[in-house]
Design a protein around this nucleic acid. Sequence first.
DNA 1: ATACGACTTAAACCTTGGTTTAAGTCAAGC
DNA 2: GCTTGACTTAAACCAAGGTTTAAGTCGTAT
Lengths: 124, 124
Amino acid sequence: MTYYSIGEAAAKLNIPESTLRFYEKKGLLPLIKRDEAGRRLFSEDQISLLVTVGCLKNTHMSISDIKKYIDWVIEGDSTIEQRLEMLNHHKQAVLAEISLMTESLEGIQVKITRYIKHTQEALR
Amino acid sequence: MTYYSIGEAAAKLNIPESTLRFYEKKGLLPLIKRDEAGRRLFSEDQISLLVTVGCLKNTHMSISDIKKYIDWVIEGDSTIEQRLEMLNHHKQAVLAEISLMTESLEGIQVKITRYIKHTQEALR
DNA sequence: ATACGACTTAAACCTTGGTTTAAGTCAAGC
DNA sequence: GCTTGACTTAAACCAAGGTTTAAGTCGTAT
């Protein structure tokens, strides 16, 4: 199995090393191995779990909820229903947030349109 | 002209009074009037400006950028082009954020689908 | 005239999500 | 054998966006 150093993992995921260390401290990187010198070893599995963490972060799940999810992943198949329910619930929250943003953007668009009209009228 | 007390404004906008005071301190409520007793008087114009602030907040504009916008509003018509450029720029950022969320949500949906399959297979 | 509710202020406090700093360990190349 | 670069830690620091607290001032209903 191939492992990545924290520097390599950070480069692959395009996030700072400090963030990876911070995530470990927050419990988002359980079971992470170390070499004889105490350096973290990121497996492919860890990397792809971190990609999932990225999706959850991008959709504004809090770190404590992401930790809950990771803990269930580590616990194994017996928690699949919980994970499913959590992700479904999160999905609804994300859809609601996207709706709110879209709606608010329409309000902003009204201003944009008005400003465009105004600048054009100034040219008449 | 009718004015609203901070309590009425808070109820209308459905945000805490403390937030309105905080916004004033941050410069988002310039020109706000006071009665003889020093109490804030929110005009209809203030309220609708706050609705706009709400749209900007919902789409994750920072308070310091909102302040910049408000300052331009106060400054008058000479700043319409700046406002237009700012809102257009913000709109692009919002669309990019919505895209990122939508894309990340698809990654989450893959997990959901997999979990559903798994729980169904467990019933076979 | 007094108590109550709605308001005022400044300052302290809080959470979230990191980033930075300082001091140290280690492996490898010169 | 010594420097350099990549790593380690704990703890301090930071910014954003509020919220809470404490002490005080009003206007009004009883």
